[in-house]
């Protein structure tokens, strides 16, 4: 399983970024190998449509699940169409966020938050 987490930095000790579209990095956790990879979020600098572009990136990373603070309506629409579920996690280290999700402590993001919050 591939879990993508919106991150403020590029290590598993970095803090999760509650903004999805404009986070600086994506942490890509592969549960099969128990390894992390980090990719820059090029969407962060977009004038408009950062959430759409970020969701496209997450789709390209072949994610099964996204851990983040909130998802805007457009990002949610893209993730939904790719069958990727979002889960809400707050201010914690990337590694801890993955554990929280695996322990069933993360809540599924069923509906999108307001737009332009990131």
């Amino acid at each position: 399983m591939i879990i993508v987490i919106s991150s403020t930095g590029d290590s598993k000790y970095s803090v999760l970024d509650s903004r999805f579209g404009r986070c600086s990095n994506f942490a890509v956790y592969n549960s099969k190998t128990d390894t992390y990879e980090f990719v820059e979020n090029s969407a962060a600098a977009s004038g408009h449509g950062a959430g759409i572009s970020a969701a496209q990136k997450v789709t390209d990373l072949k994610a099964n699940v996204v851990l983040t603070g909130n998802l805007g309506p457009k990002a949610k629409q893209v993730l939904d169409a790719s069958g990727i579920k979002g889960y809400q996690v707050h201010d914690m280290k990337i590694e801890d966020a993955v554990h929280a999700y695996q322990n069933g402590e993360a809540r599924e993001i069923a509906s999108a938050g307001p737009s332009h919050q990131g």
Binding site: I52, Q56, T59, A81
Partner: peptide, 25 residues
């Protein structure tokens, strides 16, 4: 996904099931 890659305004997204178009962008 070439259309979404070419869009400088993030108006297109290729998902696993379709290409989504956001007209206001």
């Amino acid at each position: 996904g070439k259309c979404a890659d070419s869009c400088q305004f993030n108006a297109l997204a290729r998902t696993m099931s379709n290409v989504l178009f956001f007209e206001e962008l």
